[in-house]
Design a protein around this nucleic acid. Structure first.
Lengths: 185, 185
DNA sequence: ATCATATGAGACAATAATATCTCATGGTTA
DNA sequence: TAACCATGAGATATTATTGTCTCATATGAT
């Protein structure tokens, strides 16, 4: 069981890092290691520097979100449905999402490209849904994407507060987005 | 004109601090001073420690937001109108707002109280507007407040990006909020 | 012109965070 | 059991940040 144990320590660190850094982006490595129930040295064994940790977290966040969105979209038969499934799937990853938008990645062109591409894919999806009539064509795609992003985070916070179940939060976010930016009655 | 100069340095520091910290909460005092076009020593003359700076910023943010909201609401004749005016007035203070929600204030009970009260006032306002029929009574006040907050931030980002003028951004946020959480057609 | 005050620049010390290393331990595999 | 590996704990070094101090300078007030 070496392998599973090895992963579990690393995963505990990653999970703790998302949790701690999403609440306090300047948190020290000690805090992160402590929160993960792990020694500082162990953190450095897995991530040689703070910079590397942040890089790996960014990669992980991107990957998790892409996977979640992709998986949620198998079998859908419209862009509108894809968007809704994506929303629902991504809300529980709010801390990842938050991390991506807030953590300043310095000079890693690879990651910046990947993030840029994700943004573009989202814009395409929104535009396709707009063509299907989901959104008011008078509203800029920029705003819709912006609202989508921030409503995800709003829903995630409701989940974390336990003021809403995941299903409720996702329903509220979807309703607010689609009625709010949809065609007027 | 001593007084105006004295204020200007301090104000430049406060402005720079909001700007820099809203992008990177862990930014060093050097960065902030540099961004303000001021020596690091001068920063320490005005704010004896990082802690004090953060405290003053929090106070300032609270005060500015209260003043803006209060001023915007003179002469309104409904809670719904008050809410709309408040939204419009607060969007340009997005960085202040962001700072309030993100910066972990440690053990300053005074400020925590003030923030808590502001939250409660917002809930009351939303509830009053709900009674006027602005929002669907089936939607929890929690969610409406949450959406309100995050749409403010979304609108502010659009302003900063220059993808929307302040008036446009505020109109989009208001539309999205009210149609999104209003009574269904 | 003179004085007071705020400032910038930089030296300096104190502190906190980061990174590296060693060693003892406990669990795993062979 | 013996060898192995990841780990925790802690010592240590290296930075980065923070906070204090001094001095020369500029600017506004009188």
């Amino acid at each position: 069981m070496v392998k599973s144990k090895r992963l579990s320590a690393r995963e505990a660190l990653i999970e703790a890092a998302f949790e701690v850094l999403s609440r306090n982006p300047g948190a020290s490595l000690s805090r992160i290691a402590g929160f993960a129930g792990v020694g500082r040295a162990t953190l450095h064994r897995h991530f040689s520097s703070r910079q590397e940790l942040l890089q790996k977290l960014t990669q992980q966040a991107l990957q998790e979100m892409n996977e979640a969105a992709e998986q949620a979209c198998v079998g859908v038969n419209s862009y509108s449905e894809a968007l809704k499934k994506t929303l629902t799937a991504v809300i529980p990853l709010g801390d990842r999402y938050y991390f991506l938008t807030r953590e300043p990645i310095e000079e890693d062109t690879e990651l910046k490209k990947a993030i840029g591409q994700q943004t573009r894919e989202m814009e395409n999806l929104v535009n396709a849904a707009k063509d299907e009539g989901l959104f008011d064509s008078d509203i800029s795609t920029d705003w819709i994407v912006q609202a989508f992003d921030h409503l995800i985070y709003a829903a995630w916070e409701c989940m974390r507060n336990e003021t809403a179940t995941p299903a409720q939060a996702s329903e509220l976010a979807w309703r607010t987005l689609t009625l709010g930016t949809g065609k007027r009655a």
